[in-house]
């Protein structure tokens, strides 16, 4: 195997996702440390149009346009092509994003190439001739560092492992045709159903204002949304309120929702159950607004305001806006 490092990118609405730009940046910085080459691989319908934005972040971009497979679930299409390219060109490491599609691709690539996978990378750096992967495990109670015992390997990287940064000089874009050595069974998309506008992604947000059962009902979330807007953050939630149908599952934080690590987490009317805590306890600063001084969240917050969120949150939004003005 060679020594190159690849990043597998993905698109949303025709543009590279922020996580993809982070992966491209990470591949470039690791390649510099390795003294090797970095490449971003983009397999998607309309890939060529999106490639320049990726190339801005440094590595050369391999582009495979799959317009003909638009009606198929993408992970199987992407992994069959990336696997074929990898078998031909022999990179030592492939970075995949810890997004739904990225994890699907990572697992399928592992099967097609028979490579191992390191999951859940919160940070990756080059040390002693190998990537050292930092992971937060057990709901944030432990941070481990792992190293693959051999190359090649797939490494799955979480959002926020590195800040996306443009390179001094953009990489070259190379369009390639790929005939997969082995296709994976096709899964047809019968219909794409839009139910709501996509909310701001909580995994990428620097500030999250989250609401729990204390918000009282779906209307109560207006207060949470307004505070999030004032702070420039995204809206998060507990499972209790997702189950109640007050907000969408995409905003749920915790064991069976998303794991987040914003600079600021404001918890409003959230008790701080263990299943919620494991999704947010590594946040930079945690502020809790709760009526109950004995709520579990008091034990792991940095600032706790005992009071009614309906009295506090609107005033806080106004004060933050006044300060910014």
């Amino acid at each position: 195997m060679g020594s190159a490092i690849w990043a597998v990118a993905e698109l949303a609405d025709g543009a590279p996702t922020r996580l993809s730009l982070e992966l491209a940046t990470l591949a470039r910085t690791l390649a510099e440390a390795m003294g090797a080459e970095a490449t971003t691989v983009l397999v998607a319908p309309g890939a060529a149009a999106a490639a320049p934005a990726l190339a801005q972040h440094g590595p050369g971009v391999l582009v495979v346009d799959t317009a003909a497979s638009e009606e198929l679930a993408s992970a199987a299409v992407v992994s069959a092509r990336v696997a074929t390219l990898a078998a031909e060109r022999g990179p030592a490491w492939i970075l995949c994003g810890a997004s739904p599609d990225g994890k699907d691709v990572a697992g399928q690539l592992a099967a097609l190439l028979d490579w191992p996978v390191l999951v859940n990378g919160a940070a990756v750096r080059w040390q002693d001739g190998a990537p050292l992967v930092e992971m937060s495990i057990f709901g944030g109670r432990l941070v481990t560092e792992s190293r693959p015992t051999a190359s090649p390997a797939v490494i799955v990287v979480r959002p926020g492992a590195i800040a996306a940064e443009e390179a001094p000089a953009p990489g070259a874009v190379e369009a390639v045709e790929v005939v997969p050595g082995r296709e994976l069974p096709a899964v047809r998309i019968v219909e794409r159903v839009a139910e709501a506008a996509a909310a701001a992604s909580i995994e990428e947000a620097r500030i999250i204002v989250a609401g729990g059962r204390g918000v009282g009902g779906p209307e109560g979330f207006a207060v949470i949304e307004d505070l999030a807007d004032a702070l420039g953050g995204a809206v998060g939630a507990t499972r209790a309120v997702v189950d109640a149908g007050w907000i969408s599952y995409s905003q749920q934080i915790g064991q069976t929702g998303k794991i987040v690590k914003p600079a600021l987490y404001v918890a409003c009317g959230i008790s701080g159950a263990i299943q919620h805590k494991v999704g947010m306890q590594t946040s930079g600063t945690i502020v809790a607004i709760n009526r109950d001084p004995d709520a579990p969240i008091v034990e792991f917050a940095d600032l706790v305001v005992i009071g009614d969120l309906f009295e506090i949150a609107p005033r806080l939004a106004a004060a933050v806006r006044a300060r910014k003005a």
Binding site: A75, A76, A98, D104, G107, Q108, A110, V119, N120, I137
Partner: peptide, 11 residues
């Protein structure tokens, strides 16, 4: 927290 076993197994 890997979430890769199902895709791997299917492939």
């Amino acid at each position: 927290l890997g979430g890769v076993v199902p895709a791997w197994l299917a492939a």
